[in-house]
Simulated scan of single mutants.
Amino acid sequence: MRLLIIEDDQPLATLLARDLATLGHESVIIDNGRDAFALVARDRFDGIVVDRLLIGSMDGVSVIRWLRDAKVEMPIIMLTAYGMRDQKIEGLDAGADDYLVKPVDAAELDARFRAIMRRPTDTLQSGILRAGDIEVNVHMHRAWRAGRSIEVQKQEFKLLTELVRNAGGVMTRAMLIETVWGYDFDPKAKIVDSYVKRLRDALHIEGLPDPIETVRGVGYMIRG
């Protein structure tokens, strides 16, 4: 992949680009949003990494919003500080496909880009996610299984969305705590297991198998 890294912390950006290079990726680094626009307009990239807290008149959310308004549809992953839940939500609402908490692991960044690229294009636009007989409409906050409407609470819906979004891959408890609860809980807490049980109850239909698979010692997954 050829990636554009929009990050004003030069040592961090350089280190990330170096680690990505060991995975076979080429990176271009820019330290502000305005110059990034010109690069995107004239050059080809497979994905964009943008820091949420850019110094200057345009922060990362403004950059993401501008790119999406300009119909730039390539994958965008936003970098955030530890525990900044509101910043994550703001970035996702602006059009980011995913986010990572700094310091960034290049291998995880690579995996997340590949996961985004596996999603059908119409899924990114419509907000509809599918895995097996489960369908989730992210925009409408509604879910169905085997054509039946599923009633779930807010956090259960977010948990289901993440499992379906990453169907076929294991989501660790730590990953689910990060994406669903925003690091509000200790990763060793039983909050994930408790909500998975509630979600299983909501998804239960007589005669159909449990769609959530427990990967012992790791986490949970829904098969695609």
Score class of each variant (00 low, 15 high):
P187V: 03
M140E: 15
N32G: 08
I205Y: 13
V50Q: 10
G60M: 06
F37K: 13
N32P: 01
M78R: 06
D86Y: 03
L23V: 06
A36S: 14
R198V: 02
L20E: 03
L129K: 01
M117F: 03
L100D: 02
I116Y: 08
T179G: 00
E90A: 15
R112Q: 06
R118K: 06
A115P: 00
S57M: 10
V50W: 09
E151Q: 13
P209D: 12
M1K: 04
K154I: 09
R223V: 00
G182E: 01
I48L: 11
K88Q: 14
M58P: 07
D86F: 05
G219H: 09
T161M: 12
T179A: 09
S62H: 05
G47T: 06
S194L: 14
G56L: 09
M175V: 03
G217Q: 09
E151P: 02
A96F: 02
P11G: 04
L159N: 03
D184P: 02
L79G: 01
A111E: 10
D133Y: 01
I150Q: 00
L100H: 05
V215S: 04
D193G: 15
G217D: 10
A107S: 12
S57E: 15
I55D: 06
Y99A: 06
R165T: 11
V192M: 04
G207V: 11
V101W: 07
V180A: 07
A94H: 08
R85C: 00
